[in-house]
Design a protein around this nucleic acid. Sequence first.
DNA 1: TTATAATTTGGAACCGGTTCCGAAAAAAGA
DNA 2: TCTTTTTTCGGAACCGGTTCCAAATTATAA
Lengths: 327, 327
Amino acid sequence: MVTISDIAKIAGVAKSTVSRYLNGGSISETTKKKIENVIAATGYSPNKFAQSLKAKRTNIIGTIVPRLDSFATSQTLIGIDDHLRELDCQMVISNSSQDLKREIENIYSLAKQKVAGIILLATEITTEHLEAFRTVQLPVMLVGQQHDQFHSVIHNDYDAAYELGKYILANGHRKIAYLGVTEKDVAVGIKRKEGFRKAVEEVPGSKVRYFETSFKIEHSIQKVPEILEEFNPTIIVCATDNIALGALKAAHMNRLRVPDDLSITGFGGYEITEITHPSITTAKFYYREAGNLAARNMVKLVNEEEINQITFSRYKILERESVDKLK
Amino acid sequence: MVTISDIAKIAGVAKSTVSRYLNGGSISETTKKKIENVIAATGYSPNKFAQSLKAKRTNIIGTIVPRLDSFATSQTLIGIDDHLRELDCQMVISNSSQDLKREIENIYSLAKQKVAGIILLATEITTEHLEAFRTVQLPVMLVGQQHDQFHSVIHNDYDAAYELGKYILANGHRKIAYLGVTEKDVAVGIKRKEGFRKAVEEVPGSKVRYFETSFKIEHSIQKVPEILEEFNPTIIVCATDNIALGALKAAHMNRLRVPDDLSITGFGGYEITEITHPSITTAKFYYREAGNLAARNMVKLVNEEEINQITFSRYKILERESVDKLK
DNA sequence: TTATAATTTGGAACCGGTTCCGAAAAAAGA
DNA sequence: TCTTTTTTCGGAACCGGTTCCAAATTATAA
């Protein structure tokens, strides 16, 4: 284990000179070359614990995820990893297992690890979140939700839903069920619904009914027969692709042909929606790109550079097989 | 930031006494109580960097994953997280992005972080892997592959494939295509095929042809029409659920009813195989349990306790809708 | 050439813990 | 009660770096 003392001795300089070399302090070209050569010859790399202990900072970015087994989370993490890896920053992932209490604990735990900043893949922001972030005093980057006290990278839920709504209406659908989620989740529960509502308000003669389910596929499978019985829409607009997968399964189970008897759309652009039969029309969010943007912005926040309060990642309406053209 | 010096001062003892208390050294009941109370009152927790710097060890377990966006990986990670979290051990995840070179780098990088051990979710073990592990001299736990130089938790690929083969044969299938993957992956590419082969050898009159594709769904979608044209089997046994999803999509695209015209099975028990229409028969592996077992064994290895060279996680044949009963 | 300003360097203290070992205290044995 | 053994305790060195600041060296200006 080569230490800074070894490097200093071999190069014939003081430890503090090597440290200055490593950290951008003043150093002559001659001395710089000497140190460079010794480091290259020995393969030295600094002990991160010693650095962090004295300097009281790290190059660790903490990422808190609500769950490890979701498409959106995985892609976002890959995007974050892509960027942090280039910078020799370490990403530490803290899994909250969809437990808000645990998410708060994770915030404090990451602070204890002296992370340089926290990227939070958020579902909702409670007062406890606010308090924790106030206490730990770290740069915070939200992904997928916005809050006026933090910087965020968000998917354009509103515009995507508006555009998807226009597409659906342009295909002649006027009797529409919207299957949403809890409004505690502002992005998925409120913004997507509002964008969709804006689109239908622009077309007279549309009948829309709003329903609610959870994020779980099984609940969507159970909810759809109720909707069919109560309202009998030509299409179900689902707030997530998982809900859409559940709706597709329910349609098959009820002997409905998709899209002939019932059309279905989702949000997210999960890989599996292209594989199903029929493939599902959806508003695709570029989660990996969002993760990458979040990491870039995080690094800027850490370096105390100015960034936008809100950064949008892209979306794209993927027109596939699951929407019938009625007219 | 409360330090051990603060605790010592308040409790009226030396720093080294507090340290002995924290680390199981000799300490009287009276002194122990004093320190306990001060720690409880102050919420002190030790600085991990200082501990690691001096003690030259950590409670970090490094987990190397081939990719972040796979069902098996996610579930395994959750299982590892479940256990390590209980122990106040930190899990650090290193993503290899399916790049063997990067996987080797990750091994060295984790060693530099003084991880207590490495859990490797492996696809193959090359000589470079062997060399890296020899160099870093850390406890290693493989998941999903076995190798005679390391401890491992594996899915019972052979027995699961044997049992699935028996089930398929019991349903009357005699003209069978097996769609496998590269034999570089011993578990998925060799063991599953061998177990299946054992089953069909026990039933005279079976015609089996073995084909190969990659792990990607798109490749499976392209491969299936070739198989149908060349061999026209009653069933395709796919080496993973993703390959089975591709086969299902290809069947639909070719106007084949599943299971009437073509039956399909997979391996893994991915959540989505229950949602498809028809739901896919598969050999389910308990990835989360495997992750949990791996973490438990890892901790034992770190504590220099004896463990079995190989630990099997469970499997279960999920008989669903995608296999036709021919007789 | 001399004086002044700027740059470079190294020694020492320090970060928050762990570890060692001699001294002191407590417990056990004769 | 005295001697021996065991347990407890604290002081000091140390882990591998960073930081500060005075001294030394180099560069610039008069």
